[in-house]
Design a protein around this nucleic acid. Structure first.
Lengths: 211, 211
DNA sequence: CGGTCAATCACCTAAACTGGTGATTTTTAA
DNA sequence: TTAAAAATCACCAGTTTAGGTGATTGACCG
């Protein structure tokens, strides 16, 4: 069965060469090539593609917004983003929007065709540099959670009570210490966690599993 | 310059065929092949590799632990994990430990050599199915953060800011509303969450994944 | 033995928060 | 269209917190 591919790309040259490339490829055809994402849903109905190649930078509706719209209406369609630069924020946004693959435009034609096939089969083809960035971001998300924080026993105890929503007064009562001592401990906790309020401390405590 | 590769793989057949494969490849040589991660650091010094191929499942020290140890002592070495199954948890753990690439063992030899080269150049080669899982996990992490419940849009927005440690004043500034309005919204939030302080609200918001 | 650190307490001020009453406008749902 | 819900603002009183200074005690380490 033929893989139907739609192309969204504002550069005329690139758009047409992609169209050529796809039509010349085995069991693959380009059922639509558009310079922007205007009349997006209408064009999607026209082309009825299995795979969409989407430029991430387009005038008007951005590639990322387009991905969101397509994914909302055609959730089964796989989308292959094309980027000129491997910009962290853009990649991140595209992932969240639901794109499957991320190829740099300078990728060799043959590789691009392979990527389309892989996308069609549910894969997630990525240019090496993009893959690295994705993993970096991924690792970063986790790394933040493992930041080493060395609270004393007493401080942990008090932090745990704060997480339970207790006030200084309640903590003082529970720990049999004065409210001023609680205040001092809390100040030390804030310093170690690099925060400046109870809610921040509570948020950090939970997120980093300090309690 | 030759790429020096070390192999950690408990299956004798596979280990030796990898060794062959690597030694037959252009500008690449296998400087060590070991059945387990015992004497890991010693063997690493012997082989002095640029790239390590590490089986994720090994008797004794697991592949993931080995990755951690290698990354701690030889941070410049790139590690290519080999997995039989594309198990979510394992992939996750390996990423956090610092592995660069994740290939299924059934990958074709030629692809495997390419993957080693890509790893050496700082890339992150992944079998399609692994790449998909990585993106899935990545997306999941984000998706959870945008899920809300019972609260009105505005309330969710404000709660999210409280979780970030903002004061009423800061929230007012960010939302372009007065501090009294913030106070009213907060009161409503407290009622809906059945709490009586900012920290309780924050704790609940995080634990129930309201933000 | 001297130094560091955790834990304790006190006093203080400005800022932030809690919770109450009351009111207007816009949006949404019955 | 009408009523409920959401969003907005205001005033107020009492409580809590944040952060600064300063000080004492006991434990542990070299």
């Amino acid at each position: 069965m033929e893989i139907k591919v739609a192309v969204f790309e504002d550069n005329k040259m690139l758009r047409e060469s992609l169209q050529q490339l796809i039509n010349n490829a085995e069991s693959m055809s380009c059922t639509g090539a558009f310079p922007d994402a205007n009349k997006l849903l209408h064009n999607m109905h026209l082309a009825n593609p299995d795979v969409v190649m989407m430029d991430i930078n387009m005038p008007g509706i951005s590639g990322i917004e387009a991905v969101q719209m397509i994914k909302a209406k055609f959730p089964h369609v796989h989308i292959l983003m094309q980027t000129v630069f491997d910009d962290n924020d853009k990649i991140f946004a595209a992932i969240c929007a639901g794109a499957s693959g991320y190829m740099l435009k300078k990728t060799f034609p043959q590789k691009m065709i392979e990527a389309i096939r892989e996308t069609y089969l549910g894969g997630a083809p990525m240019t090496a540099s993009v893959a690295v960035k994705v993993l970096q971001m991924f690792r970063l998300q986790i790394a933040e959670k493992t930041e080493f924080i060395d609270l004393s026993e007493r401080e942990k105890e008090i932090l745990a009570l704060l997480v339970k929503g207790k006030s200084y007064k309640a903590v003082a009562a529970e720990c049999f210490i004065s409210i001023d001592t609680v205040s001092t401990h809390v100040r030390h906790i804030y310093e170690k966690l690099h925060v400046h309020s109870k809610s921040e401390a509570v948020a950090k405590a939970i997120n980093q599993k300090l309690v």
